[in-house]
């Protein structure tokens, strides 16, 4: 109970900090913070399948990009409203995961990782080659931001947009917390720890994992929709390996299988890449070195957790 009260205090303190931060910072930094919030949602989705289900995916960017492109295309090319377009963006990400999950969940461990990466490349290839729809490598221009209707604020204001994203993050955390505490979430963790035993208890472990895979994609799709509003333009690189790998690193630094871990990880990784961007042209080198340093010098706790993530090779 004590522990519960302390973590509640911690969450309230973090929330208070998140609420006052825009007042204390230049708009440029508020923009970076907004990116942290969006990537926290993205990484949270990955955490559900990686930390709680034991499925390390290197393909979450597929759903990020699907959410972003869907909302962009529906708003600009089809001309429907932001709200239905955003819902459709998240839904399309889930639908794609429902299809890809059938293929990827044939494998586990490192093979699962290879397959998710390869499937994402197919999405990248569509974004890159279908120029009439996506703009190819010129990017998809000027998505714009929704109008809040009756509310007196405009999302074009950096600070207002930050609070807009913060609302979604808080909702996402609440949904995530509810999922992992639910009987379904516990069954997922049971499957991660011992799939065979869960199966003999009568659980359909494949279905548990399949549903988690789709939920993770819904989180990624939401992040993609918000990121399209945030940046204003979409590029095929959003379906590339970099966002997927960044999410993986965020989850690992923050601590897989914890609710707040991806938030901390997103803050750390985005800070590093922003600082690297300011001081050097060689951000790729810095980012690469960050991966290596994190893995080499991360405390044992993090690496120890890593061991649990990969399903042990079956001895039978």
């Amino acid at each position: 109970m004590m522990r519960g009260r302390w973590s509640l205090l911690g969450i309230l303190a973090a929330l208070a900090l998140a609420l006052v931060a825009p007042g204390l910072l230049e708009p440029y930094f508020v923009g970076i913070l907004t990116r942290v919030l969006i990537f926290a949602i993205f990484a949270m989705g990955l955490n559900l399948i990686m930390g709680y289900t034991g499925l390390p995916s290197l393909g979450q960017a597929a759903y990020l990009a699907t959410g972003a492109y869907t909302v962009g295309i529906l708003v600009k090319k089809v001309g429907i409203g932001f709200l239905p377009a955003s819902v459709a963006g998240v839904g399309m990400a889930g639908l794609l995961a429902a299809a890809f999950g059938l293929i990827a969940l044939r494998a586990r461990g490192a093979s699962f990782l290879m397959i998710t990466l390869a499937l994402t490349q197919a999405v990248w290839a569509i974004a890159f080659t279908w120029r009439s729809l996506t703009g190819g490598d010129d990017g998809f221009p000027s998505v714009g931001r929704p109008d809040l209707g009756f509310l007196p604020w405009s999302l074009t204001d950096t600070r207002v947009f930050y609070y807009f994203v913060l609302v979604f993050l808080v909702l996402a955390v609440a949904v995530f917390y509810t999922i992992v505490r639910s009987p379904y979430g516990l069954a997922l963790q049971g499957t991660r720890d011992n799939e065979l035993r869960m199966r003999s208890l009568g659980y359909n472990t494949w279905m548990l994992q399949y549903v988690a895979f789709i939920i993770a994609a819904l989180f990624a799709g939401l992040a993609g929709v918000l990121y399209a509003f945030h940046v204003g333009a979409i590029a095929p690189g959003w379906a590339g390996v970099t966002p997927s790998a960044e999410a993986l690193l965020m989850v690992i630094i923050g601590g897989p299988g914890t609710v707040v871990g991806p938030l901390v990880g997103a803050g750390m990784i985005i800070s590093v890449s922003e600082v690297a961007n300011i001081f050097t042209q060689r951000w790729m080198m810095v980012l690469g070195a960050t991966y290596i340093v994190v893995i080499l010098f991360a405390p044992d706790g993090i690496v120890g957790r890593l061991k649990r993530l990969m399903p042990r090779r079956q001895t039978a």
């Binding site: 390390p56 290197l58 461990g109 490192a110 990782l113 390996v241 790998a245 993986l248 690193l249 690992i252 060689r282 790729m284 080198m285 980012l287 690469g288 070195a289 960050t290 991966y291 290596i292 994190v294 893995i295 080499l296 690496v303 890593l306 061991k307 993530l309 990969m310 042990r312």
Partner: peptide, 30 residues
């Protein structure tokens, strides 16, 4: 780098070699 990880630490190897991928790509570009 890789020798220090046991075979159970596949994720650590994936991320470490992904870091090396970025470093090599940038190094080749330079």
């Amino acid at each position: 780098f890789l020798r220090r990880f046991s075979q159970l630490e596949e994720m650590a190897q994936v991320l470490l070699t992904f870091g090396a991928l970025l470093v090599i790509a940038d190094g080749a570009l330079i």
